[in-house]
Amino acid sequence: MGRGKLSAFELLPEACDGIVAWAASELSDRDRTQTDIYAEFVLKCEQLMQEYRGELEFAIPSFSAFNRYSMRLSRLTRLHDQTRDIVAAIAEKFDAKESDDLTIMTAETIKSLTLHMLADHGEKMLPKDVMQLASAMRQVSQAQNISTERRIKHAKQFAAEVNEAVDAVAKAKGMTAETSEAIKAQILGVRT
């Protein structure tokens, strides 16, 4: 079973990748109308052909092809947003450690899926597909960084609470500073 007829966007030359990425970004922002974005898209394509002075000729996708591309992009964006909302809702039900574990598991799954997609379809993937995969990988990395930052924050908060509690007990019980520091070191696993 073949892939079927290539879309107008799939037929664009590599030189148009930046313009397609720009259009995808503009459509995702939802700040402008699709008609305005399409008009600028056409202008950018025409300017690109002029820069190549006849050495690069291609058919500019029609407004209906642009609309289909926009709808496909919108579906993917909606699916991505829904997935993010689901993961956020699940993460709220876990404590910090479980949430970090979930983030790591999700990140590794997305990384694995991305590598499989590249291995299976890398040669057939369009630049915009690669851009979306790169965006997903960047977001996974950001999620892992946030997870790490949260762990560090909780560890610092725990250490501060331990220090405060041990100091209060030490003062109330008349312990020496050396004993207090030894207790803190045992609880926090830090050598003083």
Rank of each mutant, 00 (worst) to 15 (best):
D81C: 09
I104T: 09
M71F: 05
S112I: 00
L79G: 04
S64F: 12
T77G: 01
T114A: 05
L102Q: 04
D101V: 11
F94Q: 07
A107S: 05
H80L: 07
A88M: 09
L113S: 03
A107G: 06
D101T: 09
R75A: 06
R84C: 08
S70T: 01
Q82W: 09
I104Y: 05
A65C: 03
H80N: 04
D100T: 12
A96P: 01
A91D: 08
K111R: 13
A65F: 02
F94I: 09
R68W: 00
T109V: 08
A65W: 02
Y69P: 01
K93S: 14
T106Y: 10
F66D: 02
Y69S: 02
S112C: 01
Q82L: 14
M105R: 13
A119Q: 02
A96Q: 14
I90E: 15
L76A: 01
I86D: 12
M105Q: 14
Q82E: 12
R75Y: 09
E108C: 08
L79T: 01
E98M: 06
Y69M: 04
T109Y: 14
V87M: 09
R68G: 04
L115S: 10
E108R: 12
E108A: 09
M117D: 02
S112L: 07
A89I: 03
I110V: 00
A119K: 05
K111I: 07
D85G: 10
L79N: 07
I90D: 09
L118C: 00
A65H: 00
S112G: 05
M117T: 06
D95N: 15
D101F: 15
R84P: 04
M117R: 04
M71Y: 10
N67L: 12
S64Y: 12
E92G: 08
R78A: 15
Y69F: 15
R84Q: 12
D85W: 10
L76Y: 03
S74R: 04
H116F: 06
S74H: 02
D100P: 04
Q82D: 14
A91L: 08
I110A: 06
R78G: 11
N67F: 10
A91I: 01
T106A: 10
S64T: 10
D81F: 07
K93A: 11
R78M: 14
A119L: 06
I90G: 07
H116P: 04
D95C: 05
I90C: 13
T77A: 07
R72S: 09
T77I: 05
I110Y: 03
T83E: 13
N67Y: 11
N67C: 14
I104A: 13
N67P: 03
D85C: 15
S74L: 03
S74C: 04
F94L: 15
E108D: 12
K97T: 15
M105C: 11
K93M: 15
D85T: 11
D100Q: 13
A65S: 15
L76R: 01
I86T: 14
A119R: 06
